[in-house]
Design a protein around this nucleic acid. Structure first.
Lengths: 396, 396
DNA sequence: GTAACTTTCGCCAACCAGAGGACGAAGCAC
DNA sequence: GTGCTTCGTCCTCTGGTTGGCGAAAGTTAC
């Protein structure tokens, strides 16, 4: 099948494409109600979109009491690829134009192996998805990487946990490889976009999305759009100080949030607790797998292990302290928490909430939901497809 | 003189008015270069503005090598009033349409006396400005208050240091009193607007403006606009924790920034140092005036008093710690520091900078100016007139 | 001092895009 | 079948852009 190469010619067409993406198939009349456009103009633009092949007719719409209208929808062959590269795993998903996930693969990796090795893996996974018949090619690819990105160029800059990625032209290289448009962003921003598109933050314009995985980052959505800061590294909250007398962090400072509470720190603490015999539960798990991860800790906490619960509680307080500061500063409409450690669930959430509600202005916390992400591991890939579709569904 | 009651009829007129405000008198040709509009349309809109009296012709413009063009400017009789209500003082200034300050008054007050008393004072000051012949009336009034404001309605909400102001309809009451449009905002936001309009932050779209006065707040400018958060209390950084084992704060928590470093905290510390005999310099000043303020501390520091210098240094480190967190989170293009304690000047600035540069990502700090505000006490009132002019120079 | 060039301004004609009304077609309810 | 509603197309009208032209008023070159 021939890939779509057309792009909307103007803002009206772009707006229509987004309406169809987010609202699914619609009649012209329905579109007319949602868009600020005269009927004649609307008809012209839809005709043009039909001509370019970006949208297709799709039978009749349900009657609303009068003449039935013809439906239109995004071209059914549209395929977006979402790639979420984590520190230790890769998620790849293929969606249709409406960003519904048609297929999904997860693979473990080590981001430290460098971009060439990782992208070989990504390409293999994409190939597998194609072979399973879900796509014959991709119209656009969105990629999330665990570090700061110079967004316009799609190039990682000085990523702390990704040696070898600094300056690697991810966007350009993959654009060539896939033969289509590619957009690259920080994984946390994409998680925010994902939760906004299809998760808990639907219809929230200003919110924060805190991802606690191997590291800790925060996606910032202002007015429905990702805020990236002037150099693209906004949301880098992992090294905010939570305790002047705290632990020494890899960054050279003391008491960084990430040194106390992140996937890496928790795993280390859990192993320490297992070795020292403070937690029999964790010791058993360590025995079984040889290593401990935050998932083991979550399981131990779920099983009621007091040491694990305590770690979740104190960790939550630390994150809560930082989030309280961010809430005071940013006054968001919602805080979404995601990433690997969400397995700690309500223990974590409870202590975060208690910190925030205690430390921030009532005016800021009065109507502030602090919730876990709804999409789990899919948030990143969905956000990635949202990113690339936003790009493609905007005037060239 | 009759006040201007007209408002721009469309976005083009609004845009023209702002161009004239920010660029001063211009010829039609100059305006044509700066605005996205055809010559004929431009001529029509300018003619309409001339008709309504919002702009006036103003002689010939300097020739650029051809036929001389007629200049237009904002109506010369336009007068805006900027009011900056602090915890202990009031600033009032009158400007022309171009927001040039024509006259300025400063008076001490106590915001705790409540809105009625304070506004009586404000009205008296405005009257005095009128009597000095600077204005015959006001076309718009902007007001800053030291606490959170429900912006659309212009009503303070739950302001911690302004008992009696909660829910007082400032905008409505003063609009009646002055007989013109009034806009109310947090004083810190207005300081940010002021520094953006006429101060160090000209041409910076994303920056933070930290005001350290009686309390501590932070104005957030995103994309050239004030970000107020979902309930209007964004930037309330005074109660971010800087030390879990720190001082007890009035808010009930421990180690709040404001408890360690703010006009009030510094004055208390300075008096303590004077009493205990640790600083002879401060003791002399205490003797002289019976009370110490941050201005005394600044003077002592400037004179080389080691205790005062140490207070400035450690205080700067505390603020710097918080700002470092905000820089990591927000990745601004500039940080402006203002408010009463700016008298501490470079001692303060140096320790803030060292903290931020040490704790935040190089990517975020690489090209990040951390500077003192340029406008001093005038930032608030200029920002206030900017606020109301932005409002009046937008389509009705 | 004069001629040639430049720049601005106002006017007009041609043209184009989009809004909104009119109208017929298509479907539903009774 | 009759009346009502909805849908889609056609057509007109308005507002705005573009480009051209000439007058006015400067500057520069000679």
């Amino acid at each position: 099948m021939r890939r779509m190469t057309a792009r909307p010619a103007n803002t009206h067409q772009a707006h229509l494409l987004r309406l169809l993406r987010d609202g699914g198939r619609s009649s012209r009349a329905e579109l007319g109600e949602r868009i600020q456009l005269s009927r004649s103009k609307l008809a012209v633009e839809i005709d043009r979109l039909l001509e370019t092949g970006l949208v297709a007719t799709d039978g009749f719409a349900a009657s609303r009491g009068g003449r039935r209208s013809h439906s239109v929808r995004l071209a059914p062959g549209l395929r977006f690829l979402g790639v979420d590269i984590g520190a230790t795993s890769i998620d790849v998903a293929v969606t249709n134009g409406e960003l519904e996930v048609l297929g999904h693969l997860n693979d473990s990796t080590d981001v430290k192996d460098g971009p060439v090795a990782v992208f070989e893996q990504v390409l293999a996974m994409a190939e597998k998805l194609k072979e399973s018949g879900l796509a014959e090619g991709f119209d656009g690819v969105g990629i999330g990487v665990p570090g700061p990105v110079r967004f316009p160029e799609g190039v990682p800059v000085a990523p702390p946990i990704m040696p070898g990625w600094d300056g690697f032209p991810v966007r350009e290289a993959l654009s060539q490889e896939f033969g289509c448009s590619v957009m690259v962003d920080n994984d946390v921003n994409l998680m925010g976009l994902g939760e906004q598109h299809a998760g808990v933050a639907r219809s929230v314009a200003d919110f924060l999305c805190v991802k606690i995985g191997t590291g800790i980052g925060c996606g910032i959505i202002v007015g429905g759009q990702v805020y990236r800061g002037v150099t693209g590294c906004a949301g880098d909250i992992g090294h905010i100080q939570v305790d002047p007398q705290g632990r020494l962090c890899a960054c050279g400072n003391r008491g960084c949030l990430e040194a106390h509470f992140s996937g890496a720190a928790l795993a280390r603490d859990a192993e320490e607790a297992a070795h020292s015999g403070r937690s029999a539960h964790l010791a058993v798990r360590l025995e079984a797998s040889g290593r401990l991860t935050s998932a083991d800790l979550a399981a131990a906490a779920a099983a009621g292990d007091p040491v694990a619960l305590d770690m979740a509680r104190t960790g939550g307080e630390r994150v809560g302290q930082v989030i309280a500061g961010l809430v005071s500063f940013f006054n968001p409409g919602m805080v979404v928490i995601g990433g690997g450690v969400t397995g700690l669930g309500h223990t974590l959430l409870a202590s975060v909430r208690s910190q925030v509600y205690r430390r921030s202005l009532p005016l800021a916390t009065g109507n502030l939901p602090i919730v876990l992400g709804e999409l789990g591991g899919m948030a990143g890939v969905i956000g990635a497809t949202r990113l690339i579709s936003d790009h493609l569904f905007s005037p060239a």
